[in-house]
Amino acid sequence: MLELVIASGKGGVGKSTVSSSILHYMHGEGREVFAVDADVEAPNLHLIFGIKEWKVEKPYSEGWVAKIDRARCDECGICRAECPFRAISVKDGRHVINEVICEGCLTCSLVCPRRAIYRVRVDEGVVRAGNTGYGFGIAGAKLRVGRPNSGKLVTEVKNLAKEIGGSKPTYIVDAPAGIGCSVVSALAGSNGVVLVVEPTPASLADVKRLHRLAKHFMLPSALVINKADINPEFADEILRWAKEENIYYLGSVPYDDVVPKSMVAMKPLLEYAPNSKAAIALREISKKFMEVLVDGWREWFRTYKPKKPEPYIPLIIKPSQNIK
């Protein structure tokens, strides 16, 4: 069993396109794969592959919201005045809590002279797993609007995937954007990272931070440059950086407008436009991924594992200062 994470730091760079191409290619080669959509705030792998059925749907909750006990409340309004998030308003003469804005801090409950406010678990959504229209497994989550992804949620999604998928498949984890809690959780316990980058300063800056996180976990990294031809000089600069950092180069994908078109059609790119230049590049990348990162994992891990773990130094950015 291998668990490989596709991540980018910056959003909208092509994580899901790369993930779905690898899944589609490996499945077509007769390999057992399992899709883990850890980008639960904006999940889309289930849209690309279609769902046969969600076999398991478990309610998920982690946060709290305040509730007013109507029998005790005398509408004094102290809670409304003290709520740091301004989540309490008056409707038809009664105090009501907006559950989307409420952070569950319970300041209201502390200040309430009549002890009329208590807290309840909020229903955040569901963690779910099932089979895609192609037959391979998928796990993800569906959150209510306004509820955030978290390290715990990503852990639950990964655990459910393994519960359903067992020890045989290669797990492809489509990570959320950023390098925060949920991304830390996507990397923890995995066996390697594919960094997806586009040739822009914003994308490179984010991917550098992500790579430091991967090094902290002593994980080897591989690189995919998406839309490489929109800024070839900068793509070369990214390649130089990758070489210095001992990152395995998987390949580059040219800009191609069939990519958004395949999303509109809700089909994997390799199937929607198999002879397009983006699909040809992604098929090459997926093949290399399968041969080097999956079949040759031991060797790849040995060669590209960081020499020493990246120490964690909190980054404090002052106004007008540039991030290196």
């Binding site: 982690e62 955030p148 715990k152 852990t155």
Partner: peptide, 8 residues
Amino acid sequence: AESGSGAG
């Protein structure tokens, strides 16, 4: 393990 964030 049960906290949403800050488990470390």
